[in-house]
């Protein structure tokens, strides 16, 4: 509290002289600049600190060594193919897992009985570490795309399911009653009340799921694959090629980030009717 009174919003003072809108633009530019400066600092530290401290390249390769390795991976290791493979399976796993999760969430949300009957098992499966299933799936399906896809589907499934189910439980009863009073049938109530009411939760579930999908695919590729960035991590690790592992991790992050950003865009469009806080 005392802090707040001390610096009475540095934003408020200059706003008196500069128009509010212009001030907002300046503020945003400053934010971007500081953000980029931090990135620059990290890259500099990454480049110069390890040699300075005598850390060898198989422990922490420098930024430029990683870039050189990236170039080599592009030429010799089929990097583009591996990246695309991982990206596609991530997307596929995410799509299948969240579709199943959402469908299951809505079905259980409509039946109190089945929700009660199945919830302990759902909870158990939710708690079980899904990535640990990977070796099992490889034993069952062999060294192909199936195991990693299954791990991703499984890991994506639950957060979506749980979010949707939670939202179905908390749909405003008065809205449902209003719809009933207007003689809407069960399907119409679902389509016009429950489905849109649960959309914010569904979107939140999807955002969590998008980051998990990357994990699922990576683990699948790590454990038993011959393609994808996860495979490159295992391969690079085996050769003590830390730069390769670094690069693969960064590319995985980029894939996850891209998926997240797309979802955020979709969410902003779909949930346009929810007033959001400034900034």
């Amino acid at each position: 509290m005392t802090d707040a009174t001390h610096d009475t919003r540095p934003a408020a003072r200059p706003a008196g002289r500069i128009p509010q809108a212009a001030y907002a633009v300046i503020e945003r530019r400053v934010q971007t600049a500081v953000s980029l400066a931090i990135l620059g600092l990290v890259l500099l530290a990454w480049q110069f600190l390890p040699p300075l401290l005598g850390v060898p390249r198989y422990i922490i390769p420098t930024f430029s060594q990683c870039l050189a390795e990236l170039q080599r991976m592009y030429q010799a290791e089929g990097l583009v193919g591996h990246t695309i493979s991982t990206a596609i399976y991530t997307l596929l796993g995410f799509a299948i897992g969240s579709a199943l999760g959402a469908a299951m969430g809505y079905l259980l949300g409509m039946s109190r009985f089945w929700e009660k009957v199945l919830s302990p098992y759902i909870l158990a499966l939710q708690i079980a570490p899904k990535v640990a299933f990977a070796p099992l799936f490889i034993m069952w399906f062999g060294y192909n795309a199936m195991p990693k896809l299954l791990v991703a589907v499984l890991i994506v499934f639950f957060p979506v399911l749980v979010n949707v189910l939670q939202a179905m439980r908390t749909v405003d009863r008065d809205l449902v009653n209003l719809a009933r009073a207007y003689s809407l049938n069960r399907w119409q109530i679902f389509r016009k009340i429950e489905m849109p009411s649960t959309l914010p939760n569904l979107m939140a579930g999807l955002r969590i799921a998008s980051t998990l999908a990357v994990i699922g695919i990576t683990v699948g590729e790590l454990v038993g694959g011959n393609s994808g960035l996860g495979y490159l991590i295992a391969y690079g690790g085996g050769q003590a090629n830390a730069a390769m592992v670094f690069n693969a991790i960064i590319l995985l992050t980029v894939i996850g980030f891209a998926l997240y950003l797309v979802l955020e865009r979709i969410e902003a469009r779909v949930l346009h009717y929810i007033p959001r806080a400034q900034g």
Partner: peptide, 30 residues
């Protein structure tokens, strides 16, 4: 549920995802 009765509560029960005119149409859709 009686189609000849319209009710209103303390809460407006407008659907936040619909604009006003679509909200007003809501009762007519079935």
């Amino acid at each position: 549920p009686n189609p000849h009765v319209g009710f209103m509560l303390q809460k407006d029960l407008l659907l936040p995802w619909r604009d006003i005119v679509s909200n007003v149409e809501f009762g007519l859709e079935s």
